[in-house]
Every structure is written in C-alpha cells, then in structure tokens.
Amino acid sequence: MNLMKSLLFLALCVPLLHGCGKEHQGETSEAPQINFELIASEKTLSANVDEIAFKREEPPAFQYLIKAAYNPIDFEQFWNLFDFEKKIPKVDFESKNVMIVGLYESSCPTHIEKIYNEQEMLTITVASKENTCDELAAPRTFVIELDKGISESLQEVRIVERDIKTIVPIQ
C-alpha cells in the first residue's frame, strides 16, 4: 500500500516539477536567432562616451552606447563619431540597417555570441572566451548589419553580458 501511495504521489508531482528550473518564458536562448553580419569591430568608442552612454543604475556599472543607422548619411556620421580607423564598409540600405554597439570590455576581448528576437525586443548576447580577465575598461565597438524588417522599429535593445540583462535605448 505504501508503494502505491508513493507512486501516486510521484505521478502527481512530476508534471508540477517539470517547469521548475527554467528561465522565464520568452527569455530563454531558445528564441529565434537573428541572421546578422558583423561588419566591423574595433577597440574604439566615441570620445564623449562617458557623457552620452547609457549607464546601468545598479551594479555592475556597465555602459553601452547604441546607435542605429537607417541610411548612408547617418552611418557615416556614426562611423566618425566612434572614430573607426578602418574605411567605412558599404551597406545596402535598401534591405539592411546598421546597429553600432559600443561598450567597455575587460582584458579579455568581447565578441557577439548571438542575437535573437524575443518579446518584440532584440537581444544581443556578448561574451568573452576566457574567464580569467582583469576588470579593465577597454573600449570595444561592434558594427552589425541587420535585415531592415527586424531593426527598423526598434526603440531599445537588451544586452546580455555575464548573464546580466540591461535594456538600452537606441540613440
């Protein structure tokens, strides 16, 4: 009889426990990944980044500067603002837009791990390949080419860095 009660209890609890341990719905990495092209990445930031960047209010004190270019004129202006050394790449603005993401990285180089769309917001996950990094504040800017349909109506982007999510307005 005790075995029967235990099996019945287990049969009732398993469906209840099935959802435990998962992240909030819509915030998992199972969201559809977005096709993108990284067209530039340099150790540079805008000279006045500390004045114009978005700063997290709570620790860690990450700073992000995100610009979106929907035409060649804006793209050239932002390219110059971020003071890139390389020549500006060509972009087909008929079908693509450009997002420029500036941040500070540690002594380990940061890369874009993935970009996905969840709950009508673009999420960009950045990471470094190493775990033993010094907490330096080295500049890094990524230039990302995205399909126009995905990026045209965005007002803000979620940046995930070290599993910390920060919602950043697009300037």
Rank of each mutant, 00 (worst) to 15 (best):
M1S: 02
K5W: 09
K5G: 00
L8V: 04
L12I: 08
C13G: 00
V14T: 04
L17M: 06
G19W: 02
E23C: 06
E23D: 10
Q25E: 10
G26F: 04
A31T: 14
A31H: 09
Q33I: 04
I34T: 13
E37L: 14
L38M: 14
T44V: 13
T44Q: 10
A47W: 01
F54L: 00
Y64D: 03
L65N: 03
A68M: 14
N71K: 12
P72G: 02
D74Y: 08
N80I: 01
K87D: 07
V91N: 07
E94F: 03
K96S: 08
N97D: 10
N97H: 11
I100W: 09
Y104I: 02
S107T: 06
S107H: 05
C108Q: 07
C108H: 07
P109Y: 04
P109T: 03
T110E: 12
I115L: 14
I115A: 09
Y116F: 15
E118G: 11
L122A: 10
T125I: 06
T125Q: 12
A127P: 00
K129Q: 06
N131G: 09
N131I: 06
T132L: 13
D134I: 05
R140P: 03
T141D: 03
E145T: 10
D147A: 13
K148N: 15
K148G: 07
G149N: 15
V157M: 12
V157F: 11
R162K: 07
R162A: 09
I164H: 11
K165L: 10
K165R: 15
T166I: 09
T166D: 15
I167D: 15
V168S: 12
P169H: 14
Q171Y: 14
